[in-house]
């Protein structure tokens, strides 16, 4: 009896509250062990839409993905950035291990943004598609559904960056994360296959000495005199 029940419960379509269900599809490793453990695919889900809700820019929302981008581009699987908010600083991406020859940047506006994201997701040629939702006009439920379907067809992981206020809206994305800065990056899982995660996962993205200086109260700017060469040691080689 117990064995038969076990067998039934091992079916990926069944999950029990309180535990992370495992799906057959293996995800793209996020590079952060606690996050991998919390995701049903043990990584960024391929063939599905993932929403990342961010209120502020510059809290590590992109660094969260760079290990996955490195993993994909090193394997020769292309990555597309649709409508990024700024110019990617090539040196920094290279320093993060991303192979630039497999990175395509697409500038698109308005409806073309969704079109380009959809084409890239369903093409079957990309490993991951990153899309930034425009500030002017947000995407509605149907648009998200289309992106999710396109990602499913092309077996690509489609990651959509959205402003935090859209978190309350209905979404077709099977995985929704919300990011906030609290010294380090706090990743809350709003929605996943299985139970939501009550406590956020904390990820430290930046070097330790930054944190040390950020927490110190003494943050006065340098004197107007030219900085001494010695202070370059703030960047350990």
């Amino acid at each position: 009896m117990g064995r038969a029940l076990d067998h039934v419960l091992r079916n990926p379509a069944i999950w029990r509250g309180g535990e992370v269900p495992r799906t057959g599809r293996r995800g793209i490793p996020t590079g952060y062990e606690p996050l991998d453990q919390a995701l049903p695919e043990q990584g960024w889900p391929p063939g599905a839409l993932t929403e990342i809700l961010v209120r502020d820019q510059g809290i590590g929302e992109l660094s969260l993905l760079t290990p996955a981008l490195r993993y994909l581009t090193e394997a020769g699987r292309p990555v597309v950035l649709v409508a990024p908010p700024y110019l990617p600083f090539a040196r920094a991406w290279e320093a993060a291990g991303v192979k630039l020859e497999h990175l395509l940047i697409v500038e698109a506006d308005g409806t073309e943004r969704l079109w380009a994201a959809e084409q890239a997701s369903c093409s079957g040629g990309c490993g991951m598609v990153l899309v930034w939702e425009g500030a002017r006009k947000g995407l509605d439920y149907r648009a998200l559904q289309r992106l999710n379907l396109a990602a499913d067809r092309g077996a690509a992981a489609c990651v959509l960056y959205r402003p935090a206020h859209t978190g309350s809206a209905l979404s077709a994305a099977p995985l929704r994360l919300s990011l906030s800065a609290a010294g380090e990056l706090a990743v809350s899982i709003l929605k996943r296959r299985g139970a939501p995660l009550p406590t956020p996962i904390r990820i430290d993205l930046y070097p330790a000495h930054w944190r040390a200086r950020a927490s110190s109260t003494n943050s006065c700017p340098v004197s107007t005199a030219a900085p001494a060469a010695a202070s370059l040691q703030a960047f350990p080689g």
């Binding site: 597309v80 630039l100 395509l104 697409v106 079109w115 040629g125």
Partner: peptide
């Protein structure tokens, strides 16, 4: 995909980066 994107958006709208 590259052909499709550049055909609709224009050649200069899809690019790679180099250091």
């Amino acid at each position: 995909l590259i052909d499709k994107l550049t055909a609709r958006l224009g050649e200069e709208k899809a690019y790679r980066l180099q250091s």
